[in-house]
Design a protein around this nucleic acid. Structure first.
Lengths: 156, 156
DNA sequence: GTAAGCCTTCACGTCGACGTCAAGGCAAGC
DNA sequence: GCTTGCCTTGACGTCGACGTGAAGGCTTAC
C-alpha cells in the first residue's frame, strides 16, 4: 500500500509518516516511480508508535519499541529496552502527578484566601479584620523542587 | 534600580524582563541615557508574575493579576478577573491530573503484562500459555478525550 | 485530453518564553 | 586614556511534531 492509504488506516497524515521516516523510524520501500510502499508489518509498527504517542511518549522514546518489533519480536515491548522506557515513564508520570497535585493544593489555598477577602468587603464591608501579609503571596517557595527552573509545563 | 538589579533581586534575567515589557506587562521608566528604571512596586509586580509562572500559568494568564496590582489593589488576586483565572486553572489542573492518572494506569498495565511475558520465557521458558492479542496493544482508545489531537504534553 | 487525485522534495511557519549573539553607547575606577 | 561592566536595540536560535504551501511528476477516470 502507498503512503496515503497507510496514513488513513492508521488515522494520521502522510506528513507525519514522512516525518517518522526522516527520524529513522518506519522505513519504506520504493516503487519504480519513487512512491513509498508499505505492508502490514509497517502498519503494526505505526500503530505501536501512535499508541505510545497517545500515552505522551516522545518520538525518540518509541524507538526501542520499533526496533524490538523490527527485530522480529511479537510485540514492541518484548525487549528489555522497551520495559526500561515504560518504567522511566511511570516514574516521570508519578513525579509529574505529585507536582501538579501540590500546585493544585496551593492554588486552591490562594483562591480560598482571595475569595474570603473579596466577600469580606462586599456589601458594606464588615471591616476586614486581621489583614496579615498585605502583599497576598510573595516569594513563593518554588513548587518545582528540582533545579530545572520554570516548569510544570503541561497544563494549558 | 536598573534592570540588572531588578532581575537579580527577582531571581530572573534581564532578557526575561525585556520580554515581559514587550508583552505589555511590567512597564519601565527611562533615565536620561535611556536606561530602564524600576521601583519597589515593580519588584512586587514581577514577583507576582514569577509566582504564577511557578504555578504553571501562561504569561497571558498573569495579566489580570498584574493589572489588578497596577490598579492599586493590595494583592494581584483582589480582582474578579484574577479569581476567574484561578478557577479556570484549577479546573485545568484537575482535568490534567485525571488524564495523567489514567495514562499511568494504562502504562502500568502494559508494563505488568510485558514483564510477565518476559519472565515466562526466561529460564527454559514454561511454555507461554494463552497468547491472546499477539500484537500486544493496538488501536488505543486515545486517552486524550478532547478533539485536540496528540496531547498530555507535560511529562518529559 | 484533461481534470482529479495521488505522489515527490524543499523549505518555511507554528507555539512559548525566553537564550544568545552582535554592534554599539555610557559610567566608573585605574 | 583604557579597561571593565553595565546598559541599549535588533534579530536570529531553541525545542517537538508536525502543518502548510510551492512546484512539479504520475495515474486513472471521464
Amino acid at each position: 500500500m502507498r503512503i496515503g492509504e497507510l496514513a488513513a488506516r492508521a488515522g494520521t497524515t502522510t506528513r507525519a509518516l514522512r516525518y517518522y521516516e526522516s527520524r529513522g523510524l518506519l522505513a519504506a520501500r520504493r516503487t519504480g516511480n519513487g512512491y513509498r510502499t508499505y505492508d502490514e508489518d509497517d502498519l503494526r509498527l505505526l500503530q505501536q508508535i501512535r499508541t505510545l504517542q497517545d500515552f505522551g511518549f516522545d518520538l525518540e522514546e518509541t524507538r526501542p519499541f520499533v526496533e524490538c518489533l523490527r527485530a522480529g519480536h511479537p510485540a514492541g515491548d518484548s525487549c528489555p529496552a522497551s520495559l526500561a522506557v515504560y518504567r522511566r515513564k511511570l516514574a516521570e508520570l508519578d513525579a509529574l502527578i505529585d507536582e501538579l497535585g501540590a500546585v493544585r493544593t496551593r492554588v486552591r489555598a490562594e483562591l480560598a484566601r482571595a475569595e474570603v477577602l473579596a466577600t469580606a468587603k462586599e456589601p458594606g464591608g464588615p471591616e476586614p479584620r486581621c489583614e496579615l501579609s498585605p502583599g497576598g503571596m510573595t516569594a513563593a517557595p518554588d513548587v518545582n523542587g528540582a533545579a530545572d527552573g520554570r516548569e510544570p509545563k503541561g497544563m494549558t
